[in-house]
Design a protein around this nucleic acid. Structure first.
Length: 375
RNA sequence: GGGGAGAUACCAAAGUGGCCAACUGGGGCAGACUGUAAAUCUGCUGGCGAAUGCCUUCGUAGGUUCGAAUCCUGCUCUCCCCA
């Protein structure tokens, strides 16, 4: 259930409330990625209390391979297994069709693949990825799709989007004919594909909209195409996706990408960037982007970010964090991840506030400049 | 006192007549990362130059050779074993 709360007058930005079985999510929202049942390096307690994440992601492919559905079922579902009481969204494994392409073989029926862990053979279909996500107990499940690579010729993109649509029909059937494994409602989001081709994207958006699900997603972006292409596609697709349902832009992105997408009417985001890049020494701060490994921070004892998106941003100095990251200390990864996630979530929450106050556009234009700065 | 081994770039360590400004690690300096096979990956790391290149390097002083980090001689230093 999604309720639009306010709309920006100058742009297509909006705020809303998405209700799920495990809680209410104010949108726009940023969802930390917790692929294998953990947001890497971060305690659930910190995720909830310090970072203030409202919802996190899990991944069907990874969780299916390990720990496997038997353990997920026996544990009472992913929420209980990992002790996370807020909402969870699971990706269907569609992105792995893209990122693990060498191990995948696509047919109309589904995708056969070899486990990257032990080489064992498996087969994903629109149906069994719903079944697995039922066992996981995700509040929001994603339809199994093919995330086409970029660049990708028109012929391939056309075939790919057709396959994704076929799979969508089958996923919806399976969704409707099955009951949740656990005692709460699960939503299913279909995914728009079509690479960077306007007509394919329009057709896909219409298909997805017609499925009548509680929310819709845009996939196949931020896979290497120029940012302007991505923004153009978002505009085309959001013209068609229903206003009264949340729009989820999968896998995006940089803080700038996110603000640009909010301006174009996107409500939900996820990205590995704050955690992965954080572990690799890249920090997003209110002053701009910093590579904490750079020599210049060696004796800078000022806080990581004086505007303190999280408690750790103020407790620890740049020099200390640099020391930890350079030394390969685990605490460095943890602090950087916590800070970055908190930064992302505060940024999106600030956007929400600005939209409601009616001064989003001006604020956003100023933020773009700050966020792009490299310190 | 006797016997043996060795000295190579910031460190460790290959190389033992030309393909060597010198393998490879580490360290250092940068860069990449967008629904996570990533606490990962890439580049540079003697000097000058955009570059073909030029100049100075393999403990030190000489020598042999068309050519030496590599062969010979002296010297200096280090380590190991025996007494």
């Amino acid at each position: 259930m999604f309720t639009l709360k306010s709309r920006d007058k100058e742009t297509r930005a909006r705020t809303g409330i998405l209700e799920t079985a495990h809680g209410i999510i104010p949108t726009p929202v940023f969802m930390p990625v917790g692929t294998a049942g953990t947001v890497k390096g971060i305690l659930q307690r910190d995720l909830a209390d310090d970072i203030e994440a409202k919802i996190i992601l899990g991944n069907t492919y990874h969780l299916y391979l390990r720990p496997g559905t038997d353990i997920l079922r026996a544990s009472g579902g992913l929420h209980k297994f990992m002790n996370w009481t807020r909402p969870i969204l699971t990706d269907s494994g569609g992105y792995q069709v893209f990122s693990l392409a060498p191990n995948m073989k696509l047919t109309d029926e589904g995708a056969s693949f070899k486990s990257h862990i032990d080489g064992s053979k498996h087969f994903f279909t629109p149906e069994n990825t719903i079944d697995i996500q039922r066992i996981i107990g995700a509040d929001i499940m994603m339809a199994f799709d093919e995330c086409a690579p970029f660049p990708c010729d028109y012929r391939y993109a056309g075939k790919s989007v057709a396959l994704t649509h076929q799979w969508l029909d089958r996923a919806v059937v399976r969704y409707r004919e099955t009951e949740p494994v656990w005692d709460y409602e699960q939503l299913l989001f279909p995914i728009v594909q079509g690479s960077t081709f306007d007509d394919l994207r329009k057709m896909s958006a219409e298909k997805v909209a017609s499925a009548g699900m509680a929310g819709n997603a845009i996939g196949g972006l931020s896979v290497g195409e120029p940012a302007d292409e991505m923004y153009r596609i978002i505009e085309i697709v959001n013209e068609i996706l229903p206003e009264d349902k949340p729009r989820y832009l999968m896998g995006v992105g940089t803080p700038v990408n996110i603000l640009e997408a909010i301006e174009r009417g996107i409500d939900m985001f996820d990205c590995v960037m704050p955690t992965r890049n954080g572990r690799n020494g890249m920090l997003f701060t209110s002053q701009g982007i910093i590579n904490i490994r750079n020599k210049r921070w060696t004796d800078d004892f000022s806080p990581i970010d004086s505007l303190a998106p999280s408690a750790v941003s103020l407790y620890y100095s740049k020099a200390y964090l640099r020391h930890l990251i350079i030394s390969g200390e685990i605490l460095g990864s943890q602090i950087a991840s916590i800070h970055n996630l908190a930064f992302y979530i505060k940024l999106v929450s600030e956007a929400r506030k600005r939209i409601e106050e009616g001064n989003f556009k001006k604020w956003k234009d100023q933020m773009i400049i700050k966020l792009s700065a490299r310190l």
